[in-house]
Design a binder for these strands. Structure first.
Lengths: 215, 215
DNA sequence: GTGATTCGTTGCACGGTGTGCAATATTTCC
DNA sequence: GGAAATATTGCACACCGTGCAACGAATCAC
């Protein structure tokens, strides 16, 4: 992943670094003093840039915290794009999301999710991130399915898949200690679980309390 | 609906009126000059209250525009609560939403949806409204299903149902002129369509282009 | 290398936002 | 009618988000 052959110039690299510094500063602050309890000036100061520069990169303090959410969803989309075209759609979707759970810094997502439940602005920013991802995924799927699928079918499908993934992440964030060693597996199991429910039309009238397939 | 026997006092009635006046003023402004192109002061002035009073009722200009969205979802939840307990869950859900399409001022929802696609803050506010409704519906369902259903099942199900409804409304808002006489029917058909896809696990690999059941 | 150019950063200014607080006006209760 | 409860309002203040012009670093042409 580090051997990107692209001759990224100094300018571009600086921007990437700055963006990352700001996002990290915002995340650190959110962790230490809680979301919504710090100002843009504090983020800028910690990131070593001016207040004005912060706003050159993000629209708000909360937006700086959705970088990781965007990363997760972008990664899932990218993984999905690499799936063989002839694989059943459901399998591709499941694999795209479950494989993404092996990404770096997964535990931070749990922390973000938990923060969002106590901070409306952060929640909105995250919902927006999921919404943006939904649009991108719909576009990706449209390429794969061609014009055979209607808009309603596409958006309903993608929305449902993301809702199930979101539900899995919420459940995971709420019930898994951030320091669990098998955190990724826990999330993976929940995503598979929720997407299977979706595939089966939620037909199980009394789904068992046990969600994961083994302990 | 108007014969609420509750003896609402003058105080309570005044608050209801004020809230409504503010929401109406905000909606009118959004329609005439576009969302995001007016200030809280303008809303307050048009509603005949002080700027400070506006903030006693809403947190932001966008929040004042989600009153109708909240109303739609609350109504759906209320209708759902009246469904017979022994009716299949899917039928109850479909009826709850499709019957809600007969509510007053439905065309305004289309306008709101369209506005949200050009205004990030408004979009976020609407997404938040759906999120709040999701939580309420999960609670309602929990009462109906008891402890037989797991949290993951409930949240995945409700999230998917709302995603399909949202997709239906988006499609409807995008493809139906606000002045269509059969606007409600159009939306009703799309909701039924999307929820049926959901029930069938999106198994139709090549869904037809025709969404509604008749022209 | 050196100068010109491009482009990211910064400070400044300014209008708008959101909220705590105390004073005022209105409704309710007895 | 008067006291208590509660809603409205003005004010102050910190913070937000952005246009603009000046400045500085990276890039390009020679």
């Amino acid at each position: 992943m580090t051997e990107n052959a692209e001759p990224v110039g100094r300018r571009e690299q600086n921007k990437i670094d700055t963006r990352r510094a700001i996002a990290d500063a915002a995340f650190d602050l959110a962790l230490s003093v809680g979301p919504g309890s710090f100002t843009v000036d504090q983020i800028a100061e910690r990131a070593g840039v001016s207040r004005r520069t912060f706003f050159n990169y993000f629209h708000s303090a909360e937006d700086a915290l959705t970088v990781r959410t965007d990363g997760f969803l972008d990664l899932a989309l990218e993984v999905f794009g690499r799936m063989p075209q002839d694989e059943p759609l459901f399998d591709s979707i499941v694999r795209a999301f479950t494989e993404t759970t092996r990404m770096e810094g997964l535990s931070q997502h749990g922390a973000l999710f938990r923060m969002a439940s106590t901070n409306p602005d952060l929640l909105r920013a995250q919902l927006h991130a999921w919404e943006r991802a939904e649009a991108r995924i719909v576009e990706g799927l449209r390429l794969r399915l061609g014009s055979a699928a209607s808009d309603l079918y596409l958006t309903a499908l993608v929305g449902s898949v993301l809702s199930c993934t979101k539900a899995a992440m919420r459940d995971w964030a709420a019930n898994t200690p951030g320091s669990a060693a098998d955190s990724g597996r826990q999330l993976e199991g929940r995503i598979l679980s929720a997407l299977t429910m979706l595939r089966d039309g939620f037909s199980d009238a009394a789904p068992g309390a046990v969600l994961l397939h083994d302990a």
